Amino acid sequence: MSRLILVAVIAVLGVGAYMYLNQPEPTPAEKLESAAQQAGEAIGDAATAVTEAAEQALSEAGDQASEAASSVVDQASETAEQAGQAATDLADQASDQVAALATQGTELINTWVQEGMLTADQFDYDKMVDEVRNSQLSQDIQTKVIAILDEIKAAPETAALKLQELRNLLTQ
Rank of each mutant, 00 (worst) to 15 (best):
L4T: 13
I5H: 06
L6G: 03
V7L: 15
V7A: 14
A8W: 04
A8C: 12
I10T: 10
I10S: 12
I10A: 15
A11W: 05
A11G: 09
L13S: 04
G14Y: 10
G14P: 05
A17I: 15
Y18D: 06
M19S: 10
Y20W: 10
Y20D: 13
P24I: 09
E25Y: 08
P26H: 08
P26Q: 09
T27I: 06
P28V: 11
A29F: 07
L32R: 11
E33L: 13
A35H: 07
A36W: 02
A36Y: 01
Q38A: 05
A39H: 08
A42R: 01
I43D: 00
G44E: 00
D45S: 12
D45Q: 09
A46R: 03
A47N: 06
A47Y: 06
T48G: 04
V50I: 12
V50D: 00
A53E: 09
E55G: 11
A61W: 03
A61S: 13
A61F: 04
G62S: 08
D63T: 13
D63C: 05
A65S: 06
S66R: 07
A68N: 10
S70A: 10
S71C: 09
S71K: 14
Q75T: 13
Q75Y: 07
S77D: 11
A80F: 00
A80K: 01
Q82N: 14
A83E: 02
Q85G: 07
T88L: 14
A91H: 08
A91W: 00
D92F: 13
D92Q: 15
A94M: 11
D96W: 11
D96N: 14
A99E: 14
A99I: 12
A100P: 06
A100W: 09
A102V: 05
Q104E: 15
G105Y: 01
E107A: 12
N110S: 13
W112N: 01
V113W: 08
Q114M: 14
E115W: 03
G116R: 05
G116Q: 07
M117T: 01
A120L: 05
A120N: 02
D121S: 08
Q122T: 13
Q122P: 00
D124V: 01
Y125P: 00
K127L: 06
K127E: 04
M128I: 00
V129H: 04
V129M: 07
E131N: 04
N134H: 12
N134T: 10
S135M: 04
Q139V: 12
D140E: 13
Q142I: 07
K144I: 04
V145W: 02
D150L: 03
E151T: 07
I152R: 01
I152M: 02
P156E: 04
P156Q: 06
E157F: 00
E157P: 02
T158P: 00
A159P: 01
A159D: 01
A160S: 05
A160E: 04
L161G: 00
L163V: 02
E165H: 02
R167M: 01
R167Q: 02
N168Y: 03
N168I: 00
L169N: 05
T171K: 07
Q172F: 09
Q172V: 08
